[in-house]
Amino acid sequence: MIDDTTVRHVARLARLRLDDAEEQVMREELSGILEHIDAIRAMDLDGVPPTTHVIELENVLRADEPRPGLSQEDALREARAVVDGSFEVPRMD
């Protein structure tokens, strides 16, 4: 159904650190859910187009006019780590 390697790969893609126990539970639960979801893989969908939007809007465009934004103080106020007006992040490696 879904194996440990897949669970680890998906967790990495989603940037979720799971411990071994969580990984195990996740594998079982996802497998269980996918068993139900697999119903749609058996359906005959030949010639059926996908639906991305249920509304039929097109061309919702904005005029190129600047609007007032946030002050630097407001932009940064919820951040945990700020250096000289910038958001700080740990090293990249």
Binding site: I37, I40, M43, L45, V48, P49, P50, T51
Partner: peptide, 14 residues
């Protein structure tokens, strides 16, 4: 298999 098909089932429901 999953997202693509689900979007098409959505069409059927609509």
């Amino acid at each position: 298999q999953y997202y693509g098909r689900a979007q098409r089932v959505r069409t059927l429901i609509v």
